[in-house]
Design a protein around this nucleic acid. Structure first.
Length: 248
DNA sequence: CCTTGTTTAAAACGAT
DNA sequence: ATCGTTTTAAACAAGG
C-alpha cells in the first residue's frame, strides 16, 4: 500500500490522464513548452506502459492537445529549426488540477469564445512575425508586394478597443514574477535577424503587432507567458522597436 | 512519405 | 439513468 512512486508503475497503466501526462511533461521542461515529439519522449521515458501501442495513445494525445483549450500551440521560432510547433499550457489553466496533484481535475478548462479569439489572433500575429522577419529574401516580393499569399491576416476584429472589463474567469494567481524587466533583457545576445534592405516587408496592421506584444503584460491574466518569452527571443525589446521594424 | 494537427463520432468510464 | 469527462478510432489537411 505504499503508494507507488512516480516511476514504479512498470507495465501497469499509470493513473494519469493524457492531459495530466502532457501537463507533466510541459511543466517538467525548462521553458514550459515542448514539441510533440518531446512530449512523447517524456512519457515513454518514464512510463513503460506507453512503450507499446504507440499509435493508439499518441493519436489520443494529439487529440487532447488540439481539443482542449488548456493547451496552446506556439509557433516555433525559425532560429530553432524542427518539425512541429511548441505546446504550452495556457497560464489560466494553471490551477486546472485541484491541489496540483495531477490526479484530480477541476471542471473542464474552457476558454470563453472571446478569449479564444483573442488568443488565436495573438498566435496568428506571432506566426506573421516569424514570416516577416525571417522570410528568405524574395525578389519577386519587390515587384508585386500585393501578391503575398504567405501572410495570413487573421480575420479578426480591428483592435478590440472595447475591452470588456474582464468578464472572464477571475482566478487569482498567488504570485507571478512576470515583470517588464524580465522581458526586456539588458543584454541582447544576438541582434535580431535584420531583413535585407531590398526585402519589402508585407504590410501588417500595426495593431496586430502591438496588441500581440503588449497584451502579454498589460493583461497579466491573459495569455502567453511563453509567447512573451518568444518576443524576447526575437530581440525585440520594446513595442516601439517592434513598430519601427515592422514598418520599414 | 511520414509526422503533426484538426475534427467528428462514439465507446468507456466515473460520479451523482 | 444522466451528465461530464476521457479514451479510442478514423478521416483528412498541411508541411517538412
Amino acid at each position: 500500500m505504499p503508494r507507488p512512486s512516480r516511476d514504479s508503475y512498470g507495465d501497469q497503466k499509470p493513473p494519469y490522464s493524457y492531459i495530466s501526462l502532457t501537463a507533466m511533461a510541459i511543466w517538467n521542461s525548462p521553458e514550459k513548452m515542448l514539441p510533440l515529439s518531446e512530449i512523447y519522449k517524456f512519457i515513454t521515458d518514464r512510463f513503460p506502459y506507453y512503450r507499446k501501442n504507440t499509435q493508439r495513445w499518441q493519436n489520443s494525445l494529439r487529440h487532447n492537445l488540439s481539443f482542449n483549450d488548456c493547451f496552446i500551440k506556439i509557433p516555433r521560432q525559425p532560429d530553432r529549426p524542427g518539425k512541429g510547433a511548441y505546446w504550452a499550457l495556457h497560464p489560466a489553466a494553471f490551477d486546472m488540477f485541484v491541489n496540483g496533484s495531477l490526479l484530480r481535475r477541476r471542471k473542464r478548462f474552457k476558454l470563453l469564445k472571446s478569449d479564444k479569439e483573442i488568443l488565436e489572433n495573438e498566435l496568428a500575429a506571432l506566426t506573421n512575425i516569424n514570416r516577416i522577419f525571417f522570410a528568405p529574401p524574395n525578389p519577386a516580393a519587390d515587384i508585386n508586394p500585393a501578391a503575398h499569399p504567405s501572410v495570413v491576416v487573421p480575420q479578426a476584429s480591428p483592435p478590440n478597443i472595447t475591452k470588456t472589463p474582464d468578464t472572464s474567469v477571475t482566478c487569482i494567481r498567488p504570485k507571478r514574477s512576470f515583470t517588464i524587466e524580465s522581458l526586456i533583457s539588458p543584454d541582447k545576445p544576438i541582434t535580431p535577424v535584420v531583413p535585407s534592405a531590398t526585402h519589402v516587408v508585407p504590410h501588417v496592421h500595426p495593431w496586430m503587432v502591438s496588441s500581440c506584444y503588449d497584451l502579454a503584460f498589460t493583461n497579466p491574466m491573459a495569455l502567453m507567458q511563453p509567447a512573451a518569452a518568444h518576443y524576447e527571443a526575437y530581440g525585440l525589446a520594446s513595442a516601439e522597436e517592434l513598430f519601427r521594424v515592422s514598418q520599414l
